[in-house]
Design a protein around this nucleic acid. Structure first.
Lengths: 122, 122
DNA sequence: GATACTGGTTACTACAAGGGAACCGGGACG
DNA sequence: CGTCCCGGTTCCCTTGTAGTAACCAGTATC
């Protein structure tokens, strides 16, 4: 899940900063703890994940609930506003499924056949 | 059109790099010349616009046609793949119309009422 | 006393994207 | 001869985003 080597990393669009879209996807199934988000988002460092979650909390996309326990437990959950982003994420995923291969093919053909020139470009 | 002060600049998502989405919108009405794209995208510098258009050409989103005239004339046009992004751009605009005010309200309330503390955050 | 656990924080670094300002080619025009 | 036009290019600098590595608090457990 959320492999950085996945071709969808070449998507020509992005939800929020680099990880916001994945957090939204990860939280669509319900509330999750910090590490339950960090693990599936392969490669995210705690610092960056904290930044992302703080920004999302600020924007009203998630709510953060900290329980006064030990060891600490914190849960994140999408707000209704955050869930509204799911339609957008789904649209992005639909686009990817339907059109990303064509984009990658175009990019591939470019590096192979036209490193320079050919049209009017000097 | 495309005022950088427009609240949609606070969108929590982005099509491609900073200007790609706006270029797609700008080209939805048909082929346009370089300056016809640069002017409505207030604030884009020619360097960055060139970068953006080159990347879109590489990805098969636009086609570039240079006419051997003087002064030079170059036209850009969306490919079918590029036009397919319009659905995504429209979804983004729909989301913005419906939910961006709520996001901005949340952000505003945050800076006013909760610079620190209140929930479990130290 | 040492260790581990969670959910972070801090300091430092690296890299890419973006922006500012100036310049260019080459014909048309005055 | 100088100037304008378009569609760029070049150099340099700022900013933002992300990453690495190390550390922390407070309790529970070994």
């Amino acid at each position: 899940m959320f492999d950085p080597m996945c071709p969808s990393s070449a998507l020509p669009f992005q939800i929020g900063d680099k990880w916001t879209g994945m957090v939204v996807l990860c939280l669509q199934g319900g509330r999750r703890r910090f590490t339950e988000i960090r693990v599936p988002l392969r490669g995210v460092t705690p610092k960056v994940l904290t930044q992302t979650l703080r920004a999302m909390e600020r924007d009203g996309l998630v709510v953060r609930t900290a329980y006064p326990e030990n060891p600490p437990r914190v849960e994140y959950e999408l707000t209704e506003l955050g869930r509204s982003l799911l339609t957008l994420v789904d649209a992005a995923r639909t686009w990817s499924r339907d059109h990303l291969p064509a984009l990658l093919r175009a990019r591939e053909a470019w590096t192979q056949a036209a490193p320079v020139g050919q049209s009017g470009r000097p």
